[in-house]
Amino acid sequence: MADWLEFIAALIVFLLSHMFPVRPPMRPWLIARLGQNGYVLAYSVLSLLVLGWLIVAASRAPYIGILPQLEIFRWAPLVVMPLACLIAVGGIMGQNPLSFGGMGAKPFDPTRPGMLAVTRHPLLAAMALWAAAHLLANGDLAHVILFGLFASFAMMGMSMIDRRKQRSLGPGEWQRLAQGTARLNLMRMPLSVVPLLLAAGVFLTLILLHEPVIGYVPLPW
């Protein structure tokens, strides 16, 4: 049991860090002091730091095989992660009154929803894709728990935020803002140069940092 303590502790901290900062009264209190953009930036940095610890802790947990280690599964992250990076980058670049806010300068225009046409919840959608791909590529118990929880957390979070926003905005205003959006529809992906370049940079950075941070080369050759 002692071998699992770091993983369990990291998992608990991650869940708590995603429960309290996004719920009242903590979220309005933080936004009042940090501003919307400051809140999103601080929350993102905190999430990434705790996420990094959790991933490292999972890699240190005892290995108990659960899923077959098929060669084709090792390609899943390399195929899916560029798409996840594009969704996350595109979502952060715009304002988003239907989810976590975003950091764009222009107010959200429901007639030109941008990445929200693909998903109202870009960060959660990116997390779900990341988790599903890495669950296939890692078949041990710790990683199945880790990525299975992330995928479930992301998908349930989309539904919970939709309901919460409908209550806070009112059904009429929510429908007006959400008319051109989707919970998740990859067929509506908008493609423009700047998000593509930024997403490529993020993906390349993740590849380069994977071995020094995680201790594993993500390339299957």
Score class of each variant (00 low, 15 high):
A132V: 11
A132I: 09
A133E: 06
A133L: 03
A133S: 15
L136Y: 12
L136V: 04
L136F: 15
G139V: 10
D140T: 07
D140E: 13
D140K: 08
D140I: 05
D140N: 15
L141Y: 04
L141C: 07
L141V: 08
A142W: 04
V144T: 07
I145N: 06
L146D: 06
L146S: 11
L146F: 09
L146C: 08
F147M: 07
F147N: 13
G148L: 09
L149V: 12
L149F: 15
L149S: 10
L149W: 12
F150S: 01
A151V: 14
S152I: 14
F153N: 12
A154W: 07
A154C: 09
A154S: 14
G157P: 04
M158T: 14
S159T: 12
M160L: 12
M160N: 14
M160F: 09
M160S: 10
D162L: 04
D162P: 03
D162H: 05
R163G: 07
R163Q: 15
R163D: 13
R164L: 14
R164G: 07
R164T: 12
Q166R: 14
Q166H: 03
R167F: 07
R167V: 13
R167D: 11
S168R: 14
S168N: 07
S168P: 05
L169Y: 02
L169D: 07
L169M: 13
G170I: 08
G170Y: 04
G170D: 09
G170P: 10
G170C: 10
P171F: 03
P171A: 13
G172Y: 00
G172M: 08
G172A: 12
G172W: 00
E173S: 11
E173A: 13
W174Q: 06
Q175G: 06
Q175M: 09
A178D: 09
A178L: 08
G180S: 11
T181R: 01
R183K: 12
L184A: 04
L184R: 06
L184S: 05
N185L: 05
N185Q: 14
M187W: 13
L191C: 05
S192K: 12
S192H: 14
S192M: 04
V193P: 00
V194Y: 03
L196A: 09
L197H: 02
L197N: 01
L197F: 06
L197S: 00
L197E: 06
L198N: 03
L198P: 01
A200Y: 06
A200V: 02
A200K: 02
G201M: 03
V202I: 11
V202F: 05
V202C: 10
L204V: 14
T205S: 15
T205V: 11
T205Y: 01
T205E: 04
T205I: 08
T205Q: 07
L206S: 06
L206Y: 00
I207V: 15
L208R: 03
L208Y: 01
L209E: 03
H210W: 06
H210L: 01
E211K: 06
E211T: 10
E211L: 10
